[in-house]
Design a protein around this nucleic acid. Structure first.
Length: 465
RNA sequence: GCUCCCAUCGUCUAGAGGCCUAGGACACAGCCCUCUCAAGGCUGGUACGAGGGUUCGAAUCCCUCUGGGAGCGCCA
């Protein structure tokens, strides 16, 4: 049997972290087994679905690299097919028209609640099929009245639902539009989905869907219900937690690999391993290793994982994202900018690319001003001579490499009986404007001789003022 | 209210009856390294929700409770 998974978001809100994790597991499972990953947009709610939200989903998936083999399919374009199935079921007696008014339904519900019962449609229109004056009917699926449905879930194990707990759900609204649970069934059937991997908030929908699938004459696919992802405070994920859309993580300077790695570790594990490349995840992922309990997002750990990926990925792969971040800060990055060297110098001191960009500004622009505290400590009348000696020594270097620069600075320190820091810190402030930068030799090597000398000159002037 | 799901350090997790005086990771603290900041290394504290069983033996199996969550819509 060929493996076919699908990610089926509805474009009503934003593509958030929970949705991405679901998409990732579907994608991983398909890739792992050489199967097919389908993207399906569930936009049957015409009131709340928006083209913008669809675009956010598409953009997000693309940024993450979760490429679909089939789709995107849009449910809104499949209405003829849904009608066809409904007509067929009506003809076969698997579905029926219901003429109950919303008021009638509401009264039924409140009465049941008052009796401490679970609110459910009692099926009164099942055998009462005569039209009612002025009422456009809905269509309901005739759910089995007794027996049980067993969901043999890949992560939860066997879950039993009694059919009496279920009711005859509406599959076509009075306005003629099909409803969610029904569309899912027709789509999963038509698209030959073999594994339905989704959030466990859908576990309760599953028996209904299985009953409908059986009405279509097929055995249901394998189901795997993933535990929920919660906000850092352990409550349901919401805008309040800042994670509006996946693209927000790009803006904040996270790598797709890192975000995916982090998300994979929420609910899934492979022994003690924390860092996974996409290829490793693909090779190792298995639904059997998914756990059942909800998990809270931990921003600190996400940041740590992001840095781990920054430190492992080839700089050439990171460079375009750093360039983007720099440009967002209004920094003019030339075509020939030494981005890869900057990445190598900065990545072990940056959690995100946004941080890295901010800390790297001085590589592209001379500092506009010196950080007050650093200047007062390191650009003074006492340090001016050190700066002058350093400048002279650096100017004489025959080759401009980190090793040569290091040698020169070390020699100066030794000659003056100073610690390396006494020489390096003033230079650091001179070239970067502050007291934090990568190792001074590496920093100057990237900066180039011209910029270095120019900035030291300016700093000497400042120190002597 | 009813149905269903879940339950190991603050957080993410390992653990599928003895390997557990419960391991790893993030975060936190201390130390080491050190030209700054980091990265890295070492050390430390903190967890099996409660109560009953089953068993020679339970974090692991069963039951009850408690706590959290989801669903019960002409939303998805």
């Amino acid at each position: 049997m060929s493996i076919r998974t699908r990610f089926a978001p509805s474009p009503t809100g934003l593509l958030h972290i929970g949705g991405v994790r679901t998409a990732l597991f579907c994608w991983l499972y398909a890739r792992r087994h050489g199967g097919t990953f389908i993207l399906r947009v569930e936009d049957t709610d015409r009131e709340r679905s928006t083209p913008e939200a669809v675009q956010v989903i598409l953009d997000g998936m693309q940024w993450l690299g979760l490429d679909a083999d089939e789709g995107p399919f849009y449910q809104s374009r499949r209405y003829p097919r849904y009608r066809e199935v409904i007509q067929q079921w009506l003809g076969e007696g698997k579905a029926y028209h219901c003429y109950c008014s919303k008021e009638e339904l509401e009264a039924m519900r409140t009465a049941q609640l008052a009796r401490k019962e679970k609110p459910r449609y009692d099926g009164r229109c099942r055998d009462r099929n005569e039209p009612r004056e002025g009422v456009t009917p809905v269509v309901r699926f005739k759910n089995p009245a007794d027996g049980a449905v067993i969901v043999d879930d890949a992560v939860h194990g066997k879950v039993v639902f009694q059919n009496v707990e279920l009711d005859d759900l509406i599959i076509e609204r009075s306005d003629g539009n099909p409803t969610y649970n029904f569309c899912v069934v027709v789509d999963d059937y038509d698209m030959k989905v073999s594994h339905v991997i989704r959030g466990d908030d859908h576990l309760n929908n599953t028996p209904r869907q299985m009953n409908m699938l059986r009405a279509m004459g097929v055995e249901p696919p394998v189901y795997a219900h993933l535990p929920m992802i919660l906000g850092p405070d352990g409550t349901k994920l919401s805008k309040r937690h800042g994670a509006v859309s996946v693209l927000y993580y790009r803006e904040e300077g996270y790598l797709p690999e890192a975000l995916l790695n982090y998300l994979a570790r929420l609910g899934w594990s492979h022994g003690d391993q924390e860092i996974f490349s996409l290829d490793e995840m693909t090779a190792l992922f298995d639904i059997a290793d998914v756990n059942k309990s909800a998990s809270a997002i931990n921003p600190d750990k996400l940041a740590w994982i992001n840095q781990q990926h920054l430190m492992r990925l080839p700089p050439s792969q990171i460079a375009p994202e750093l360039r983007w971040q720099l440009e967002r800060l209004g920094i003019a990055v030339g075509e020939s900018a030494p981005l890869e060297a900057v990445i190598e110098a900065q990545r072990e001191r940056s959690k995100t690319l946004k941080e890295m960009a901010a800390a790297s500004r001085f590589f592209f622009e001379a500092p506009a001003a010196y950080e007050d505290k650093s200047a007062r400590k390191h650009l003074t009348a006492e340090t001016a001579p050190v700066l002058e000696q350093t400048r002279a020594s650096l100017a004489k270097l025959t080759e401009w490499t980190a090793a040569a620069i290091h040698g020169a600075i070390q020699a100066l320190a030794e000659a003056g009986g100073l610690g390396l820091g006494k020489v390096a810190q003033p230079v650091r402030v001179a070239v970067s404007g502050g007291s934090v930068s990568p190792p001074i030799d590496q920093t100057l090597a990237i900066l180039g001789r011209e910029q270095t000398l120019e900035r030291i000159d300016r700093a000497i002037e400042f120190a002597r003022r």
